[in-house]
């Protein structure tokens, strides 16, 4: 695993809102092909980290490199897909079809003042097929269930052929029966298309069998390593660790995030 090229490197990243550190001295390296789950309690800086990686927030202190380029000078954003938290992503009354929403994922790649490519419809159908949604291409986005909407957003991210997809709590608001098939879909994209996935989540038990790496965040990085390493330092049941055994993990500091 560790001999693969690093595609995201975070060095000494800190971020404060008002006078409170939300992220402190974070070091984290993500390699090509990783399926990384970022876990941590509420207010632990998980969403802030995603926003910094998308440059929706600008770095205050520390550096982020994407493919070796400092993030401030990185412009190939079409290589980075994003799946937002469903609850606040859009107005469900918005009059648009699944086709129109997925197609909009090509906006950056197509370029300013250019029109969508001729084969855009085939591309939309392709990515909808990958998320098993091609039958709903002409449906209104607001009519779909939460899980279906989330698949549409994955298709929107996939259409620009991204190498990395960031997901911010994508399973919030999806009923628990469908979460498993959603995570399996992500695993398939990770394995078959070799897309690097970075997913913020609350729910360790739902993802532990699919992800390859885990980062435990509580304003600073408490743990980062492969799932195997994670299970080794944590003989007890993973879910109970998540809820109660915070202390033991913060003392372990395996890897410290640097490889």
């Amino acid at each position: 695993m560790e001999n693969k090229a690093p595609i995201i490197e975070i060095n000494n990243l800190s971020y404060r809102y008002a006078s409170e550190d939300v992220l402190k001295d974070l070091n984290l390296t993500v390699h090509k092909g990783d399926f990384l789950a970022i876990l941590g309690p509420n207010g632990s800086g998980k969403s802030t980290l995603i926003k910094l990686l998308l440059q929706l927030l600008k770095n205050q202190k520390g550096e982020i490199f994407i493919y070796g380029t400092p993030i401030e000078k990185f412009y190939a954003w079409e290589k980075i897909g994003f799946v937002p938290q469903k609850a606040n992503a859009f107005n469900t009354g918005f009059p648009a079809t699944v086709y129109e929403v997925v197609r909009s994922g090509l906006t950056k790649k197509t370029g300013l003042f250019h029109f969508y490519p001729r084969n855009v419809k085939e591309k939309v159908i392709d990515v909808l097929r990958a998320v098993e949604m091609e039958d709903l291409i002409n449906r209104n986005i607001g009519e779909l269930s939460g899980g279906q909407q989330q698949r549409v957003f994955i298709a929107r991210a996939l259409i620009s052929d991204p190498e990395i997809i960031l997901l911010d709590e994508p399973t919030v608001g999806i009923d628990s029966k469908r979460v498993a098939s959603f995570i399996n879909l992500l695993e398939r994209l990770n394995k078959e298309k070799n897309i690097t996935l970075i997913m913020v989540t609350h729910d360790l038990s739902a993802v532990i069998n699919q992800v390859t790496h885990i980062a435990w965040l509580n304003r600073s990085l408490q743990f980062h390593g492969s799932v195997k390493e994670f299970k080794n330092i944590n003989k007890v049941n993973a879910q109970s660790f998540y809820q109660t055994d915070l202390e033991s993990v913060s003392n372990v500091q395996v890897n410290g995030g640097k490889h």
Partner: peptide
């Protein structure tokens, strides 16, 4: 016509548009 893509994306999901560097 020429800004249609951008206007649609920003109207539908402004955060995604910004995350794409628009």
């Amino acid at each position: 016509i020429f800004l249609y893509k951008e206007l649609f994306l920003l109207a539908f999901d402004e955060e995604y548009g910004k995350a794409q560097g628009i």
